[in-house]
């Protein structure tokens, strides 16, 4: 089976007037397996959004190749296939909504794929059900909350039946409850619908449940591993200007004081268990 996304030694320059002005990606190689849940973290300007845009052919590498389900993004004939396989959800829900009624907005993608209208109906229903927005089907999107709008944007992608969805800071503009709604939806897509997820975020708590966390800095991948492996590098993450979950930070501080705790505690429950077992 081909990799879901296979990024091979890519380099990317942003251009201005035909001249290379900024090296945004230096030499990135990364493979995403089908069904995987990957979180990419890194501060603004680290290249994470640029990398994400390579994963559905919105940007093409200056050097190297990107394959989505075996299709090379450089070949223009593959673009439709790629976009259908890998959908993308952006930061601002308001910029992603095109129709005046929720249902019509969700139907926009499959319509453009030329799906017969009877099937579109089924897909829209299913997609709204997955994001838990069925009761809002005939509402106007602009009257919904940020979290609800973002779930509509996600439904619009699901209706295109992609194998992989790339989320580019989908929670950055949402309040805590909106953020929770969207994160719950993303997890559900991965666990129940078996959709491959690449999730870019600034919120470290959102990385705790990923299969793999990738940390980017200055156009390169600087750390990679399970959440436990990555977050145990507290000092290094702080140097990159990133947060670690408060619990991990506390663990690190307690270890420095000579308390015998494992380095990779990520959640409140784990911390409570470890502290209660201390001799």
């Amino acid at each position: 089976m081909p990799k879901m996304v296979d990024v091979q030694n890519i380099q990317f320059y942003y251009k201005s007037d035909g001249e290379d002005i900024m090296l945004a990606l230096k030499d990135i190689t990364i493979a995403v397996e089908p069904g995987e849940f990957i979180v990419i973290i890194g501060h603004n300007g680290s290249g994470k959004s640029t990398l994400a845009k390579h994963m559905n052919a919105l940007l093409l590498p200056t050097k190297g190749d990107v394959f989505v389900k075996g299709f090379n993004t450089k070949d223009e004939a593959n673009v439709w296939n790629i976009r259908q396989n890998a959908g993308m959800v952006f930061q601002n829900p308001d910029n992603q909504i095109v129709a005046t009624i929720v249902e019509e907005d969700v139907a926009f993608g499959p319509e453009n794929l030329g799906v017969p209208s009877a099937e579109i109906r089924g897909r829209v229903e299913e997609a709204l059900d997955i994001v838990d927005m069925t009761e809002y089907r005939d509402k106007a999107p602009h009257l919904l909350s940020g979290g609800q709008k973002q779930r509509i944007a996600i439904a619009g992608i699901i209706a295109m039946r992609p194998n992989c969805i790339i989320f580019d800071e989908p929670t950055a503009m949402l309040d805590p409850s909106g953020r929770r709604e969207v994160i719950r939806t993303i997890k559900k897509l991965n666990k129940e619908e078996n959709i491959t997820i690449v999730h870019i975020t600034h919120f470290m708590e959102e990385a705790v449940n990923a299969d793999r966390v990738i940390v980017m800095e200055d156009g390169q991948i600087v750390l990679e591993g399970t959440p436990k492996e990555v977050f145990s590098n507290v000092e290094q993450l702080k140097e990159f200007g990133l947060d670690v979950p408060q619990i991990t930070d506390l663990t690190n501080e307690l270890i420095k004081e000579g308390i015998d705790l494992p380095k990779d505690i990520l959640t409140v429950d784990e911390m409570v268990m470890e502290l209660c077992q201390l001799k």
Partner: peptide
């Protein structure tokens, strides 16, 4: 997150102050 931790520890019967919300204070108290 620290407030949740303190609450969970108190529920286990550990006697900690209930008004802690920073890593620094939690470290001292624990």
């Amino acid at each position: 997150q620290i407030s949740y931790l303190i609450r969970a520890l108190r529920e286990k019967g550990i006697n900690l102050k209930d008004d802690i919300f920073t890593v620094e204070e939690a470290k001292k108290e624990i």
